[in-house]
Amino acid sequence: MRQIIYKSVTTNPRGHAEDDAVAITRQALLRNGLDGITGLLYTQGTDFLQVIEGPDDSIADLLASLLRDPRHRDLRVLVDRETEDREFGDWMMLHRERRETVDAFDRRLHALLLDVSHETASYFRALMPA
């Protein structure tokens, strides 16, 4: 199984990655489930940070699609590795809800990162506000 972690920047004219998150998640649920891909999509301000994991061919196809996706730019792969086990058993998208406090959002993210590798968690923690 292959795991990729990448970071990119939104092209949304309003400058908020979460504005596109609902459409991205809807599309991902349809495609990724069929292709055996799971992961976590995190938005913070203008940034997307995503982990995708699954069969090598499926991940290669998805990465090629992501590189052509006009909703973001400057895609930079941070990790590309083979892994024995999934760190994210379900597809997830994480962004702060309008009524959610920053503290509640941080607690939710920390709970999701408890069972992942230190390396994977470090990329997400680096984006979190201090």
Rank of each mutant, 00 (worst) to 15 (best):
L78R: 10
M93H: 02
Q50E: 13
T43A: 05
L30V: 07
V51D: 00
Q27Y: 12
Q50N: 10
G45L: 07
D47L: 12
R81N: 11
F105D: 07
Q27S: 15
M92I: 05
D61T: 09
V77W: 14
Q27H: 13
E84Y: 09
L94N: 01
G36E: 09
D90C: 11
G39N: 02
A64F: 00
L67A: 12
G39L: 07
D47P: 00
D90K: 13
P55T: 06
A28Y: 07
L94C: 13
L49D: 02
D103Q: 12
M93K: 00
R98P: 12
E53V: 03
H72C: 02
A60I: 05
L62G: 03
R98D: 14
A60W: 00
D56R: 10
S58V: 02
T25C: 11
T46E: 15
D90L: 12
T25G: 07
D90S: 14
L75V: 15
E87K: 03
R107D: 12
E53K: 04
R76H: 11
L94Q: 10
T83E: 14
G89W: 11
I24P: 09
G39P: 04
L94S: 12
G89Q: 12
P70E: 11
E100N: 05
D103Y: 09
I37V: 15
G33N: 15
D61Q: 10
F105T: 02
D57H: 05
A28N: 01
D85R: 15
I24V: 14
I24G: 02
R81H: 10
D35P: 00
D90N: 14
L49I: 07
D106C: 06
G36I: 04
D80L: 06
R76Y: 02
F88K: 02
A60T: 12
R68N: 13
N32W: 10
E87I: 06
R68L: 12
H72P: 01
A28D: 01
R26F: 03
E84P: 06
Y42N: 01
L62C: 14
T83A: 13
D90I: 09
R98C: 06
H72S: 03
G45I: 04
R86E: 06
F48G: 04
I24Q: 01
Q27F: 11
R76E: 14
D74N: 13
R96F: 09
L75H: 03
Y42A: 00
F48P: 05
D80G: 06
R107A: 14
V51I: 13
L67G: 06
P70Q: 08
E82F: 02
G33D: 05
R107H: 11
P70T: 09
R99W: 11
A64E: 10
D106T: 13
A64G: 11
T38I: 05
G45K: 03
A60P: 02
F48S: 01
A64H: 06
D106A: 13
V51G: 01
L29A: 10
D69A: 00
L40I: 08
L66G: 02
G33W: 06
N32I: 09
D56P: 07
R107T: 08
E97F: 10
P55R: 06
L67Y: 04
I37E: 01
Q27C: 10
H72L: 02
D85Q: 13
